[in-house]
Computed example of a mutant assay.
Amino acid sequence: MSAPAEHTHHIKLRSTQLEMQSGNQRVDDYDNKLKAAEAELGRIQQEREELERKKRELEELTARKRSFLTQQVELTEKLSNALVLIDRELYAIRQEADELEQCRVCFAAHLDKIQKFNPENWTRENLAEKLERATMATDIAADEYDQAAAHFENGRSGAIFGRASKRARAAKSTSSEFSVNFKNGLAFNLPVVVLGALALLAYLVK
């Protein structure tokens, strides 16, 4: 009768062990699932943080881009306007420089001619002729000086000539022929002096 009793006790022991193993396995499965869930949550959190970081970077880049576009538009407008004004100023400067160069050539010719007059050496016989020629030359020089002063009066070079005479200012205000010729670069050419000399000769021949 002892053999069957031992056999029954052995069966109960194995059943308990199986139950314990099954319970341990369920605990292990739960732990594994919990760890897997925690790992998944950690991965999702990292992805979320990464997305938020990229979002901040994108917002920062967008703000910088918007700021750049605003500055680009403003600076483009400023530089474009400045270039237009600079071009106009350079054109005016070059034009005035050309006119001053013509004026200088003319004044130098007048100065050379006037300085050659020496009334002390004129004789009584040629005094009238010399005086008439000298007076005409100085009148032409004075007239062109006044017209130049009127032309440059409101420009950068106005201080060179001083204040123009009333006659020259009146001629300028009525758009005299000199003003037109001056703008075309023809006012201070030497043929004016030559014409004056021819007029003087015609007068003396009479």
Score class of each variant (00 low, 15 high):
Ile160Glu: 08
Glu99Tyr: 05
Arg88Phe: 09
Val27Asp: 10
Gly185Trp: 02
Phe117Thr: 02
Leu13Asn: 10
Lys166Gln: 08
Ala134Asp: 01
Arg64Leu: 15
Thr123Phe: 03
Leu79Ser: 08
Thr76Met: 10
Ser173Arg: 11
Ser2Arg: 06
Asn118Cys: 03
Leu204Met: 10
Gln115Val: 04
Glu47Leu: 14
Ile140Lys: 01
Glu60Ile: 14
Pro119His: 05
Arg156His: 08
Gln25Arg: 10
His151Arg: 12
Ala148Ile: 02
Ala63Cys: 08
Arg56Gln: 15
Gly185Asp: 03
Gln147Gly: 00
Ala39Thr: 07
Asn184Ala: 11
Asp29Lys: 10
Leu79Met: 13
Tyr203Cys: 02
Ala197Leu: 06
Tyr91Pro: 00
Met136Asn: 04
Lys12His: 10
Ala141Met: 01
Leu79Tyr: 12
Lys116Met: 06
Gly158Tyr: 05
Thr16Glu: 11
Glu129Gly: 03
Lys55Asp: 14
Phe178Ile: 00
Gln95Trp: 07
Phe188Lys: 05
Phe178Gly: 00
Lys55Ala: 15
Glu153Cys: 02
Arg66Asp: 15
Glu52Leu: 14
Thr138Asn: 02
Arg94Leu: 07
Ser80Lys: 15
Asp29Arg: 11
Arg48Leu: 14
Gln45Pro: 00
Met20Asp: 10
Glu132Pro: 00
Ser157Asp: 05
Pro119Lys: 05
Tyr203Ser: 10
Gln17Pro: 00
Ala170Pro: 00
Arg43Ala: 15
Leu69Ile: 11
Gly196Ser: 06
Leu201Thr: 05
Leu85Asp: 12
Glu101Arg: 11
Val84His: 10
Thr138Gln: 05
Thr70Asn: 14
Ala199Glu: 06
Asp28Phe: 07
Ser175Met: 04
Leu83Asp: 12
Leu186Tyr: 01
Lys130Ala: 11
Arg163Gly: 02
Glu19Lys: 10
Ser15Lys: 11
Arg156Phe: 06
Lys78Arg: 15
Asn32Gln: 10
Asn32Gly: 11
Pro4Ile: 12
Ala171Asp: 08
Gln147Glu: 07
Glu132Asn: 08
Thr135Ser: 10
Arg26Phe: 04
Glu6Gln: 11
Asn126Lys: 05
Asp98Val: 09
Val105Gly: 01
Gly196Ile: 00
Leu41Asn: 08
Gln25Cys: 06
Arg156Gln: 09
Met136Glu: 06
Cys106Gly: 13
Lys206Tyr: 08
Asn24Ser: 10
Leu195Cys: 01
Phe107Asn: 03
His151Pro: 00
Phe152Met: 04
His7Thr: 13
Lys65Asn: 14
Asp139Val: 03
Lys116Gln: 13
Thr62His: 12
Ser179Asn: 05
Arg64Met: 13
Glu49Val: 07
Ser80Gln: 15
Arg14Tyr: 07
Tyr30Ile: 04
Ser165Met: 02
Ala142Thr: 04
Thr62Pro: 01
Thr76Val: 04
Glu52Pro: 02
Val27Glu: 09
Glu57Ala: 14
Arg167Val: 04
Ala5Trp: 04
Glu77Met: 13
Ala171Cys: 02
Ser2Lys: 07
Asp143Lys: 05
Glu74Arg: 15
Phe178Tyr: 09
Gln21Asn: 06
Val193Ala: 06
Ile11Val: 14
Arg88Leu: 14
